[in-house]
Design a protein around this nucleic acid. Structure first.
Length: 203
DNA sequence: ACCGCGATGCCCT
DNA sequence: GGGCATCGCGGTA
């Protein structure tokens, strides 16, 4: 399958977030591929977005990679134990990103099951199967994405997004999750997900 | 089903 | 020192 190119990411996060739905996130480690269809995203629109880490043009060591240009990964630690994986959008100097919130596993089932539950996929309950990747921290756990991959170029060969199979789906827009502090920005409909998909974190 | 809460470390003031 | 783009558990229903 074809890898998404730099120009795909060089657009506003609201557009990229929607277009990433249905695409396939791939992590290759030790020659092993783990892959999942992106089913839920959120757009963070940079300096003017009160929910964004880069709001007001904030430029600290943590946020620096958001200024680095389209197609970089931005991975941060939240609540001391969970990683959140984002893709930087727009040209260098414009600090926007898309948070990948949930995905549907399609390749590397045992790898993901071991990472999340230390079991083989066949041993998982239905609840655990759904719990593999139905949230930003869970997704990072399943795909083994952590801060070592912060700043990684998604136009490279370890962590990237590729075109998926053609699929029909309906895109739902809603408020972003977990940003109640963001005043009026909390009501923007910048969260996107595939309707009726099992792995969406919050319906 | 929803509700409350604790975990745990890094970031930034 | 306060807070966080989360998760899983245990309670009540």
């Amino acid at each position: 399958m074809k890898k998404l190119n730099r120009e795909f990411y060089n657009r506003d996060s609201t557009i990229v977030a929607k277009e990433l739905l249905g695409k396939v996130l791939v992590h290759e480690t030790d020659g092993r591929r783990a892959a999942a269809i992106i089913v839920e995203t959120e757009a963070y629109m940079g300096a003017e977005d009160k929910a964004a880490h880069s709001y007001g043009g904030r430029r600290t060591p943590r946020v620096e990679v958001m200024y680095g240009g389209p197609g970089l990964s931005y991975v941060f630690l939240i609540y001391g134990m969970y990683n959140c994986f984002n893709i930087v959008t727009r040209e260098e100097g414009i600090p926007q990103a898309v948070l990948i919130r949930a995905a549907e596993p399609i390749e590397g089932f045992d790898f993901m099951a071991r990472n999340r539950f230390n079991k083989e996929f066949a041993q998982l309950t239905k609840i655990q199967i759904k719990g593999l990747t139905n949230g930003p921290g869970k997704l990072c756990g399943a795909l083994s994405i952590d801060r070592k991959l912060n700043g990684e170029d998604l136009c490279g060969n370890e962590l990237y997004v590729e075109e998926g199979e053609e699929r029909e789906f309906v895109v739902v827009s809603s408020k972003r999750i977990g940003i109640d502090y963001a005043e009026e920005a909390r009501d923007y409909l910048w969260r996107f997900y595939i309707e009726d998909n099992l792995y969406v974190s919050v319906k």
